[in-house]
Design a protein around this nucleic acid. Structure first.
Length: 222
DNA sequence: GCGACAG
DNA sequence: ATCTTGTCGC
């Protein structure tokens, strides 16, 4: 898959995008195939110029220290509309540019959005993971698809996110008394490992430090 | 046909 | 995502 990544054509119609997802979903790996983790990256995309320009930001933190050791930004004109389920076709072009500018390549990437907790099991985290053949995790602030009960109100408490009878992710409470986050495996790891990683990257806020810091970079500050 | 719908 | 101040609560 990675050897054909350079052939990926982002100039597609929503209908073609759906067809691409249906083909790519079969390349997602749901078992652990990770290296020893020394660096964790967080990616996020913000918009500029009234939504005409996508600004992707990536931060690389040492692990488990969580100290920033590298970062990069990339801007690109937005050429795909926002359509629930097709977010990756709108944001990944800029994200790939930003990742290419890093000096330190991460061992795993946490994405702002879903992994396989997606209608066709290929959210932005899984799409990125398969394209680069790198371990990825999806961390969404809200739900795209699936159903669940309320997770325990304690740090680390979680319940499965299900869809059509299968577990597609976890609704994880990273802080007591605060809305939970939606965690799903993106590529090359299990849901259990994904949950552990998200918890290890989360300190005193609802979102992991990776996504928090990437968010700051993508939308102005820091 | 109606409601849901990552960022 | 983004437009935006103050305000409620631990």
């Amino acid at each position: 898959m990675i050897i054909t990544s350079h052939l990926h054509d982002w100039n597609v119609t929503p209908q073609q995008a759906v067809a691409i997802q249906e083909r790519m979903r079969h390349f997602v790996e749901t078992a652990d195939r990770l290296p020893e983790i020394f660096h964790v990256a967080g990616v996020d995309v913000g918009l500029e110029e009234s939504g005409q320009i996508a600004r992707a930001a990536v931060v690389v933190l040492s692990f488990p220290n969580l100290k920033r050791v590298d970062q990069a930004i990339a801007r690109r004109p937005v050429e795909f509309p926002y359509i629930p389920g097709l977010l990756s076709f709108r944001e990944l072009p800029a994200v790939l540019d930003a990742l290419a500018r890093l000096h330190i390549q991460p061992d795993i990437i946490l994405c702002d959005g879903q992994g396989i907790a997606h209608p066709r099991r290929l959210g932005i985290a899984s799409h990125l993971g398969v394209l680069l053949d790198v371990p990825t995790i999806g961390v969404g602030k809200t739900r795209l698809t699936g159903y669940h009960i309320e997770p325990p109100d304690e740090r680390g408490g979680w319940v499965p996110l299900q869809d059509k009878g299968e577990v597609i992710g976890a609704v994880l409470r990273t802080r007591p008394g605060v809305k939970p986050v939606y965690v799903s495996l993106g590529h090359r790891l299990t849901l259990q490992t994904a949950i552990q990683m998200v918890m290890a990257c989360t300190t005193r806020y609802r979102l992991p430090e990776t996504t928090r810091q990437a968010h700051k970079l993508a939308s102005g500050h820091s």
